[in-house]
Design a binder for these strands. Structure first.
Lengths: 140, 140
DNA sequence: TATTGTTATACTCTATAACTATA
DNA sequence: TATAGTTATAGAGTATAACAATA
């Protein structure tokens, strides 16, 4: 199959790489949670006191899209929320022990996935790849 | 914001890079077509005589998902289809002049986007990045 | 006036399963 | 029996716009 003028373009190869990586992730998670949603949970854990809006922003979601997700997390007992003391409009998101547990339970899987990549690339190229991917987010 | 143990992982950075790149693409295309759908059109152009199934496969779509898309392409006059001579079950997809025109009309936009990336990375790192992205698709 | 979270809504993309016609 | 294309369907994820409460 010939991708024509798209061949060897970052735009195409990035999409294919991401598609395959996400597919692998989904298989291992068995539909339990999307990569982006797992990231939300990790953001909540590692940034105590964050509001919904800032979580949404760094997760690349609209704040309205976060609402049903946080509801689901509450239902599964992964997070709780409370009104911010300094601003009554805001909610503070809080990870629960069950939420930490969930993160921990899947952490090994993700780290193995990542380790396979690192092994395939070697430590130097792996670091270079991460650097490139971050640079790609900067502006170009 | 702290991404915790996900920090500097290919899995996360790849998703963020892809998300931003696609957002930029969508802006330039102004919702006219998704990157993946444009790719389908380019595949049809550059692989005359291909069946729907093989197009779907290389576009990373289920063959059922391709049906409404091809219908839309036919409606816009970008492609035609005919029964394969050797296998009456298969359809052959054919690009039309209007389809080629559409590809051509957007080609400059895509190439500019790609050029910006190349300029930001420099030719050597750019090639390295493409190589890495392809390697990522191989198996890890 | 602007912002936070929420709701209602609608849209888009996608896959699954079942069908048909061919092989 | 298996495969190509199709259909109907359902599901997920997302954003937009409007709203109440608060700043």
């Amino acid at each position: 199959m010939d991708y024509g003028f798209l061949t060897d373009m970052v735009g195409l190869e990035l999409r294919k790489a991401q598609s395959q990586t996400e597919k692998k992730f989904d298989q291992l998670f068995n539909g339990d949670l999307l990569p982006g949603h797992y990231t939300v949970l990790v953001l909540i854990k590692n940034n105590p006191g964050s509001t919904q809006s800032s979580i949404a922003q760094y997760a690349g979601l609209d704040r309205s899209s976060l609402v049903p997700l946080l509801k689901q997390f509450e239902k599964r007992g992964f997070i709780t929320r409370k009104k911010a003391t300094n601003d009554a409009r805001s909610n503070i998101t809080i990870i629960t022990p069950a939420g930490e547990d969930f993160i921990q339970r899947h952490r090994a899987t993700i780290e193995e996935l990542e380790h396979n990549i690192k092994k395939a690339f070697g430590p130097k190229n792996y670091s270079q790849l991460v650097k490139f991917l971050k640079q790609l987010q900067d502006h170009p």
